[in-house]
Design a protein around this nucleic acid. Structure first.
Length: 447
RNA sequence: GUGGAUGUAGCUCAGUUGGUUAGAGCGCUGGAUUGUGGUUCCAGAGGUCGCCGGUUCAAGCCCGGUCUUCCACCCCA
């Protein structure tokens, strides 16, 4: 039987798994230090919760879960005959895998509004699923690490979240640039250029400036229905210096508000020390429709590795509006753990002692020694050591090979001679030196 | 969803214009070394050549389909 894995999913070997746990725990520690509390939500959500929240494309990328039982018997017969998947879907699948952590969180807030306090600061580190075509840094199953605040409009939180980004990436040793923009400012830009209804099209196009260049952006804007003259105006405006842009946006109420919000965020930031550059970037778009205020994105500040954004987020005026709960603003950010992992791998940023899983391994020469070694390994563990015992008196060479393979720095050899003297032969695997020591000396000797 | 590559031993890969029995390195098992790994030497095991079909006297190699993985686009973390 040929075994394989579903597309876009991965196994993690012990070495990888240790690195991932390290990464998650470092991120989590920062979240906790900033006063965020953990929550968890189910892998499965009702499709009614998920559908229509991520655009048409998002609906296609949602994993749907077939109903249990004889699901086809209950499906609309006409739709089945027409082989119309979209019409059959609601009849055969009522659940799906979560696509991100934000929408389930919004549902969570609505459902538990009487059990939590506001502003509610939560973090969540769980896998999400997207039926995307896999490629570099993109998987169908991947972890997101989200921090969000709901129930406050304070721009202090924008500054706080920027500081969280800065702290985490500094902790991990990854040089990044934190890019910040504001949706209101973008709306103002579109207004000032005379195309107030084309904010989305404009934004998506100018986001690609680095990738497809000025002419490419111009072409795309024209193709999306922005007259060439207005498009050229937009291209000029985004090159303006900040104070010039500010003047230009005075004509737009929304634009003025956007500028003012960014200024307030910067007032907070100016008073603290950050390790990574935070830049205002009018070209930053972000795909998600529900952002209404500040938006964030993390890009690598090194050309040693090519990688898409390592995280993103923003403010939504109505986080829970789609679930019928109004006036509940939220702001949050997400860390792309898989991409951060890949970057740390390529930049070799993992701590050296991560791959050590054991402090000492005991090898027994015969059955009697094995019996005597069992309480020994138990006492070493009780003393706080990561200790293990080879499970049978195999050929000694084979046991040593195992010791080498698991990477233990110390081996305690227990043979008939040692057993008689209540000792072990302690071997340093790196240097090859070994000496006879009494059992109670072991913990001191290997530190 | 669109485009381009890819698939041969457990892993990484070679395999000539189609031609007898498909190879290498690493890993694995055993031995040299009956209480010593990481170095060396010897031997051995291990393959439906992704899958289905076609062309041919003959297919790992050519053709069609399909699936996988990778890369890019769209979009995204």
């Amino acid at each position: 039987m040929k075994v394989s894995l579903p597309k876009g999913t991965r196994d993690f070997l012990p070495a990888q798994s240790r690195k991932r746990k390290y990464l998650f725990s470092r991120i989590e520690q920062v979240f906790q230090r900033f006063g965020y509390v953990p929550i968890e939500t189910p892998v499965l959500e009702n499709l009614s919760t998920l559908m229509g929240k991520y655009g048409d494309e998002g609906d296609n990328l949602l994993f749907k879960v077939l109903n249990n039982g004889d699901f086809l018997a209950k499906a609309d017969e006409q739709a089945l005959i027409e082989r119309n998947s979209n019409r059959v879907l609601p009849d055969i699948a009522k659940r799906g895998l979560r696509y991100d952590l934000t929408v389930p969180f919004a549902r969570f807030v609505v459902m538990h509004q009487n059990e939590i306090y506001f502003p509610f600061k939560r973090y969540q580190i769980q896998p999400v699923w997207r039926a995307d075509r896999p490629q570099r840094g993109r998987y169908q199953e991947f972890y997101q690490c989200d921090v969000d605040v709901v129930g406050s409009e304070s721009l202090m939180y924008e500054a706080e979240l920027i500081q969280i980004y800065d702290t985490v990436f500094h902790d991990l040793g990854i040089p990044v640039e934190i890019r910040v923009n504001n949706r209101k400012l973008l709306a103002g830009l579109a207004e000032a250029a005379g195309v107030p209804g084309k904010m989305m099209e404009m934004t998506v196009a100018i986001d690609k400036l680095d990738k497809i260049g000025r002419n490419g952006v111009l072409e795309e804007m024209v193709r999306k229905g922005i007259p060439e003259g207005n498009a050229l105006q937009i291209l000029n405006d985004i090159d303006l210096a900040w104070n010039e842009l500010e003047d230009r946006l005075l004509t737009s109420q929304s634009g003025t508000l956007g500028v003012s919000e960014l200024k307030q965020v910067w007032n907070y930031l100016d008073a603290i020390t950050l390790h990574n550059p935070v830049v205002r970037d009018v070209r930053l778009a972000r795909g998600l429709n529900y952002y209404t205020g500040c938006i964030f994105e993390i890009t690598l500040a090194t050309d040693k590795v090519q990688m898409g954004s390592l995280g993103g987020g923003g403010r939504y005026a109505e986080l829970t509006g789609v679930f019928g709960m109004n006036d509940m603003p939220g702001v949050g950010i997400s860390f792309g753990a898989e991409r951060i992992y890949d970057v740390m791998d390529e930049l070799e940023l993992w701590p050296k002692d991560l791959d050590r899983q054991l402090d000492i391994l005991i090898l027994a020469m015969d059955e009697a020694c094995l019996q005597a070694a069992f309480p020994l390994v138990s006492s070493l563990r009780a003393a706080g050591l990561r200790a293990d015992l080879y499970p049978q008196p195999d050929k000694f060479k084979k046991q040593m090979k195992y010791a080498d393979a698991v990477g233990t720095p110390w081996v305690a050899i227990m043979g008939p001679e040692e057993l008689e003297d209540n000792q072990v032969t302690l071997k340093n695997m790196a240097t090859g030196e070994q000496q006879r020591v009494s059992i109670r000396e072991i913990p001191d000797k290997i530190h």
